[in-house]
Write a protein that binds this DNA or RNA. Structure first.
Lengths: 113, 113
DNA sequence: ACCCTTCCGTTCACTCATTGAACAAACGCC
DNA sequence: GGCGTTTGTTCAATGAGTGAACGGAAGGGT
């Protein structure tokens, strides 16, 4: 489904290490090989990544996935959105925790089975 | 799939308002009617909920879903687990935010297209 | 040069959770 | 009793996700 989260992590890992294979990346992303492949192709089609031949000029199987300038901008934009979203999540989380603790105190112990 | 999260929310909402219909509960849970039904039946089978006839003693379609004592204990236990899990999530989130901000500062602006 | 192994990206048939339209039961109302 | 409404229940269809299998290409050994 190519969520924002997956997109961001993919861009980030590729930037950190362009020589990652799809299998390695799949491991880092925590998704399957098939989905990783689909994700990379989508990013390439959008122009956010470019697949360069790794060693020489011939058709080779091992690629280097490099961020394009537009890919770098996209990653930065995603990061900004993430900070905002994560902050909101954190707020919600704190609220939930407070509510849970309130509930726990209301029902101190139900000893009997 | 009946995740912990769904279980907890279901128990919570049912406790707050036992007269909820499955459709209303589905709306609160953010999942489909079918899944809500599946979830409720699973909770009933586990003895965490009991479906009481709403008004009179005859077979009626509208139920009241009440927490059993064991359901109350389960909900409390889930709450405890949630507090721990959510705290960990919060820590991870803070870490991520810090990392994202570091990245943003590293790449102040890519103006050119 | 040749073969064989290994590693890569790519594909696609399968699985399985999820959905929501359709159905049946049971009520209130007239 | 009849009708419309509301409820729980079912299940065919959908769609995302998986990972085994494939073919291409490099490397190593002889």
């Amino acid at each position: 489904m190519l969520t924002d989260d997956l997109r961001f992590k993919a861009l980030k890992h590729v930037q950190d290490n362009p020589q990652l294979t799809q299998r390695e990346l799949a491991g880092l992303l925590g998704v399957s090989l098939g989905r990783t492949n689909y994700c990379l192709q989508a990013l390439i089609e959008k122009g956010l990544l470019k697949a360069a031949n790794f060693r020489n000029s011939k058709n080779k199987r091992a690629y280097m996935y490099k961020l394009t300038p537009s890919g770098l901008r996209e990653k930065t934009a995603l990061a900004v959105r993430f900070i905002k979203r994560k902050e909101l999540e954190r707020q919600a989380l704190l609220g939930e925790i407070a509510e849970l603790q309130r509930e726990l105190e209301q029902q101190p112990a139900e000893e009997k089975a």
